[in-house]
Structure formats: C-alpha cells, structure tokens
Amino acid sequence: MYGPVFRGLRAAWRRGDEVFAEIALPEEHRASAVGFGIHPALLDAALHAKAFLADDDERTMLPFAWNGLTLHAAGAATLRIRVVRPTADSLALDAFDETGAPVLTAQSLVFRPVTAAQLGATAGSGGGSLFGVDWPQVPRSGEVPTPSWVRLSDAEEVATLADDVLTGAVEAPEAVVLPAVTKGPTTARWT
C-alpha cells in the first residue's frame, strides 16, 4: 500500500486527448524535494495521471522505457503536468513548477503489457534478485598476510622502482606510497 507521500495527485482534468494534473508532496515532505532532481513520489504521482487518459485497453501495463527525458530544474515540491498518449502503449509528459517554469519533459514513456500469470510468477520468489550477501571463507592460519608496499619520496625513486620491476630485479609491491607535498597554501579537496 502506498504511504501518504505517494498520494500526491491533487486534481486532474481532461481536454480532448490531454490530461492536466496538479501534484504535490505532503507539507511535511516538501523540504526533502531539494535533495532530488525530481522527487520520486512526484514522478510516481505524475504517472497516476495516466488513469485519466481515455483508454479502452483492458491490459495491465507496466512502465518499460523512458525516451527523451530532460530535467530542466531540480527540487520542485509541487508540479503542474500535462500528459498525452503519442501511441497506444506510451505517454508523453511535461511538468512545470508553480511559476510555469519547465521542470521535466519526457518525449515518451513506453509501457509493456504483463499478464496476471507473469506477475504471480515473480511474487514472493526472491530468487531473481541481482543482489545478495556473500560470506567468503577466510583461511585460518597462524600468519596474517602482510601486503607488500614501498614508500617513495620522489619521481627518481618511482622511475628506479619501475625499471627494477620491469627487468625482474624486484617483485612489484601491492602498493606504492608517495607523499603529497605542495608549495604555498594548501587546500584539501575530496572528489
């Protein structure tokens, strides 16, 4: 069952083959919108507008592929959207913020039919997961292997080590440590 954050469809109306809708995050979740390009609950609510498109098709359809998806702005907590059906198995979506500025454009979201048997075959199976926990066996021995490493202080030592490894005079260490030294003021930057 969807929680309150995924019940964002506030209003919807049709004009011919177009559906317009207003969607919004609940007040207590609006501040979290800034952490997303588009909040997943808003995107989900936008897809709920599909239910208002004129459709005689009784098939169960699941989203399959986004095409021409462009994010124009990030962090919206409310959207006004326009949904049309370019083909029988797809929809196009335009989303705007409260000022009318574009937020998201999707040229198409293609849907594929799925049968009840296909849905039932995967329910509760858990065997098709791409993720899992693996506990590799660690050999029990009295010695803990120590990785080989070498500390070098300048480019000349790096070149010498490289030559010695290439000629077979020494075995390549698992790690080489070089001190990072700069002249003048320094700034740490993590990327």
Rank of each mutant, 00 (worst) to 15 (best):
L119W: 05
A95H: 13
W149D: 00
D94H: 02
R82C: 08
D94I: 02
P86E: 15
Q107G: 08
G120C: 02
T99W: 03
A123L: 15
R85A: 14
P102V: 01
V103H: 02
V114C: 06
A106Y: 05
S108I: 02
V138Y: 12
P136I: 04
Q137F: 08
L104W: 04
V83F: 09
A76K: 07
G126E: 03
T122H: 11
V144Y: 11
R85V: 09
S153R: 11
A116G: 06
D134F: 15
A77T: 10
T122C: 07
P139Y: 05
V84S: 09
S90C: 08
R82D: 04
A117L: 09
G132I: 07
A117R: 10
I81S: 03
P139F: 07
R80A: 05
Q137A: 13
V110Y: 07
T99R: 11
L152K: 00
V103I: 06
A76R: 05
A77D: 14
T115G: 10
A117N: 08
G124D: 11
L104S: 04
L93F: 08
S129P: 01
L119G: 03
E98M: 12
W135S: 08
P139S: 13
S129I: 05
Q118L: 08
L130Y: 03
L104F: 09
R140Q: 13
S129V: 02
P113V: 13
P102E: 03
S153G: 04
Q118A: 11
L93T: 02
S129N: 12
S108T: 09
P139N: 11
A92K: 04
V144S: 09
A92C: 01
S90I: 06
L91E: 05
S153P: 00
S90Q: 10
T99K: 10
G120R: 14
G100N: 08
I81E: 02
S141F: 03
E143T: 06
L109N: 04
W135P: 00
T146F: 05
P147M: 15
P145W: 14
F96W: 13
T105P: 02
A121V: 05
G128V: 02
V83C: 06
V84M: 10
E143Y: 03
T87P: 00
V114Y: 13
A106S: 06
Q137E: 13
S90E: 06
A121S: 13
A117E: 15
V84Y: 01
P139H: 13
F96S: 01
G100V: 10
T78I: 04
G120F: 01
P147K: 11
G128I: 00
A76G: 09
R82A: 06
P102D: 01
P136L: 04
A88D: 14
S90F: 12
R151F: 01
A95Y: 14
Q137P: 04
G126T: 05
D89W: 10
S153I: 04
T87G: 13
D94Y: 01
R80M: 09
T105R: 09
W135H: 12
Q137S: 11
L91C: 07
G128A: 10
L93V: 07
R82Y: 01
G142L: 06
G142S: 10
A106T: 07
D89V: 08
S108G: 09
L152N: 00
G127N: 04
P86L: 15
A95I: 14
P147C: 13
G142D: 15
A123F: 12
P102T: 04
G127H: 02
A123S: 10
S153V: 05
V83R: 07
S141G: 12
L130D: 12
S148Y: 02
A77I: 09
G128R: 09
R151L: 06
A76P: 00
D94V: 03
